[in-house]
């Protein structure tokens, strides 16, 4: 039988599980979340874990910030085998230490680096592609549809950029949202937030319209290149991007 170890969806819980597995020299066949449907040849195991609340701090201290960031970004990715990649990355970290990211001949390392830069790239893209609407109470509201779970990363970017604004960003693929009140950010599941119909500020239509006028004007007709545009701004994101939404 192949042993699949189960964790409860959070990054902390995954790290706690990995710590135990590593300590006891257990090599799992795979690591999956609670609602995993095991196949015939798999045996799911849920360990009784005393969750260490300081586990994040502990791993940051062990790995250093930049390596920790790599596995955290992998965790945020929409990838099938991300947990086992994280496990093997950690396992090899204790062998190679600071050299770990140079060992690209190891599958776990090359995959971890590939996935983490994919997440980081999508986060960077959304720093540009996110479109806020201004609501009547001057709150800025945006909806995004990223492949990976970048909502929190993105929110940190906007807390620095728009420190003095209230904003809400909703990930419509995951039905979660983040709310910033000029001080802190908080994550919610969309069900937990009571949203009446969005009342837009009086200026909103005017500026949305003005932006679309600008967008139409700034492209040079003689250089038209829609393929190039799609390369940089994939169609899958257009739904949430004001100026191209109507071209879908």
């Amino acid at each position: 039988m192949q042993n699949v170890y189960i964790y409860n969806d959070t990054f902390e819980s995954l790290l706690n599980l990995c710590e135990i597995l590593l300590k006891n020299k257990i090599k799992p066949f795979n690591i999956k979340t609670i609602n995993y449907q095991a196949s015939l040849f798999e045996n799911t195991i849920k360990l009784d874990i005393n969750n260490d609340v300081d586990i994040i701090k502990k791993f940051v201290n062990i790995l250093g910030v930049s390596n920790f960031k790599i596995i955290y970004y992998v965790f945020l990715a929409n990838e099938n085998n991300k947990e086992i990649i994280i496990y093997y990355y950690l396992l090899n970290y204790f062998k190679y230490r600071d050299r770990i990211n140079k060992m690209r001949n190891l599958k776990c390392v090359s995959e971890a680096l590939r996935i983490s830069s994919k997440v980081s790239r999508e986060n960077h893209r959304f720093k540009g592609f996110t479109r806020f609407k201004e609501l009547k109470n001057h709150v800025l509201y945006a909806e995004i549809n990223p492949d990976n779970d970048i909502l929190e990363l993105l929110a940190w970017h906007f807390t620095k950029r728009l420190a003095n604004e209230n904003f809400i960003i909703k990930d419509i693929n995951r039905d979660i949202m983040v709310i910033y009140d000029k001080k802190n950010i908080q994550l919610f599941s969309s069900e937990d937030v009571n949203f009446n119909e969005l009342m837009l500020s009086t200026d909103e239509d005017f500026f949305q319209n003005l932006w679309q006028v600008f967008y139409q004007t700034i492209g040079i007709k003689e250089r038209k290149n829609l393929k190039c545009r799609r390369n940089f701004m994939p169609k899958k994101y257009w739904q949430c991007i004001l100026e191209v939404r109507n071209e879908l």
Binding site: G128, G219, I220, K221, R229, N231, F232, M233
Partner: peptide, 9 residues
């Protein structure tokens, strides 16, 4: 940061 891409790419 690039915010959008025009019809000319």
């Amino acid at each position: 940061i690039c915010h959008s891409f025009a019809s000319d790419g």
